[in-house]
């Protein structure tokens, strides 16, 4: 994920982000669909809170993640009733990307986490395991009546639909 102002965003980087995050998910769904029809399986796309709220200098990332929400809604209608299609839009997660962000901002990892946590009602960032649990839920039979939905494991930052 490259961060850059829109008028100085390198074109190749912009499309690399969109094509990896959005097109990559589309290609996966297209390739998997005939198999999933026979297994009556489920698709879960990983979107992002930034795709819902937008974020400055993250135009490619936010566009790609918002696009995944549209893809979720389109494919949920198209592939029903055989295949369920849902998405998650997680908030800030404790992943190696944070270290990169901290480096770019010239602050320590600890400081970076605390800055993010300050803006989150639950006062902490998520663990990857918590986010994985949301994905597993949507993929499981416990979510058998969910399709076209976006769940927002984000510690309470947004209530956007």
């Amino acid at each position: 994920m490259t961060m850059a102002p829109v008028d100085r965003y390198p074109l190749d980087d912009w499309w690399r982000v969109v094509d990896t995050n959005l097109s990559g998910s589309f290609y996966l769904a297209r390739a998997a669909v005939s198999h999933l029809r026979t297994t009556r399986g489920a698709i879960v796309f990983v979107s992002s809170e930034w795709g819902i709220t937008g974020w400055p200098e993250a135009s490619a990332y936010a566009a790609s993640k918002a696009g995944l929400v549209g893809l979720t809604r389109a494919l949920a209608r198209e592939l029903a009733p055989a295949i369920r299609v849902n998405a998650i839009a997680p908030g800030i997660i404790d992943t190696p990307q944070l270290e990169v962000d901290a480096g770019a901002a010239g602050i320590s990892l600890r400081e970076m986490k605390s800055r993010y946590a300050d803006g989150i009602p639950l006062r902490r960032i998520a663990t990857a395991r918590e986010i994985a649990a949301t994905v597993a839920f949507l993929a499981s039979d416990d979510a058998a009546f969910y399709t076209g939905q976006v769940l927002h494991p984000n510690g309470g930052t947004t209530t956007a639909s």
Binding site: W50, I52, P56, A58, S59, A62, A66, G67, G70, A74
Partner: peptide, 18 residues
Amino acid sequence: YVAAKAALIGLGRSLARE
């Protein structure tokens, strides 16, 4: 079409902030 139009909403919200 739907994916591209939804992406446009995310793009618009990001650029509004930026």
